[in-house]
């Protein structure tokens, strides 16, 4: 399988003022196929979110080679979009204006923006909420807006940084189902960072376990569960076996 996104030997050290340097990524390698759903699990602070920000183009690594569709990565671009853990909605913008943010920054006019945002708002089930401000929405609704905003610019790659971590357990389950539905119709490549092993298995084609900081890929699990997946699958023996295997890899990396 030719990799759609590939990272080789990526190194990154943070040098915050007033503190010592922190090595976030060391010889980090990754390959993601086109249209693949890849999850990364790892201990807190292992650099998995950092790597998403590198892919997004917000952080430049110190060294290493990152390519997307064969071309080296250079800065932010509309071919990638991020869904943030704390939603990252602009509180002073309505639902619609938040969804249209990326389109607006591309210089698209109001009518054209509306044509694109309207079906997306419908898809996430927030028709009638276009004029609401984020503080008037529930957590699940907010993250739907975050998802619609990321999809609005029609990126090839969705980067998701623990997108459901701030939601309660039931909302989270529903959002996972929704995400799978959208992924299957929209055919995006997804890189999904999470703390939850079960979430990673349920959603992904492959799950990467990272080491503690400085982060490297420790082991990659292929998830051969059939699609479309449903909730019952989570209680099957295969699912639980995978869960245990991944946990066994992960637990050595975690220090309390």
């Amino acid at each position: 399988m030719p990799a759609y996104i590939s990272g080789r030997n990526v190194n990154l050290t943070f040098r915050p003022p007033n503190r010592g340097p922190v090595r976030a990524l060391q010889n980090f390698d990754i390959d993601i196929g086109e249209g693949e759903f890849l999850s990364i699990v790892g201990p807190s602070g292992c650099g998995k979110s950092t790597f998403l920000n590198v892919l997004l183009g917000l952080i430049k690594p110190d060294s290493g080679d990152i390519r997307m569709d064969g071309k080296p990565l250079a800065g932010p671009g509309t071919d990638r979009a991020m869904v943030f853990q704390e939603f990252g909605l602009l509180p002073w913008r309505t639902v619609q204006a938040n969804v249209e943010l990326g389109l607006e920054l591309k210089g698209m006019g109001g009518d054209a923006r509306r044509k694109l945002s309207q079906p997306l708002i419908e898809m996430i089930g927030l028709s009638g909420f276009e004029g609401h401000f984020p503080h008037e929405l529930s957590g699940g609704m907010k993250q739907r807006v975050g998802l619609a905003r990321a999809l609005a610019t029609d990126p090839n790659v969705l980067l998701m940084d623990e997108p459901f971590a701030a939601l309660d357990a039931q909302t989270r389950d529903l959002m996972q189902v929704e995400l799978l539905r959208i992924w299957q119709t929209a055919k995006k490549t997804v890189l999904f960072v999470t703390h939850q092993i079960e979430e990673a298995i349920y959603l992904s084609d492959r799950v990467m376990v990272m080491t503690k900081r400085p982060g490297r890929a420790k082991k990659i699990f292929k998830i051969d569960l059939p699609r479309p997946r449903d909730y019952e699958m989570r209680v099957t023996p295969e699912f639980n076996k995978l869960k245990l295997q991944i946990w066994n890899e992960l637990k050595d990396e975690i220090t309390v």
Partner: peptide
Amino acid sequence: KTLINVVRSFGASEWDIARLVVVPNAM
């Protein structure tokens, strides 16, 4: 910082950051 990152990830300039995030936040 997250909001600044959000607009930057959509390719925003320094001026866009000021216009879309910094000034409304300071209001």
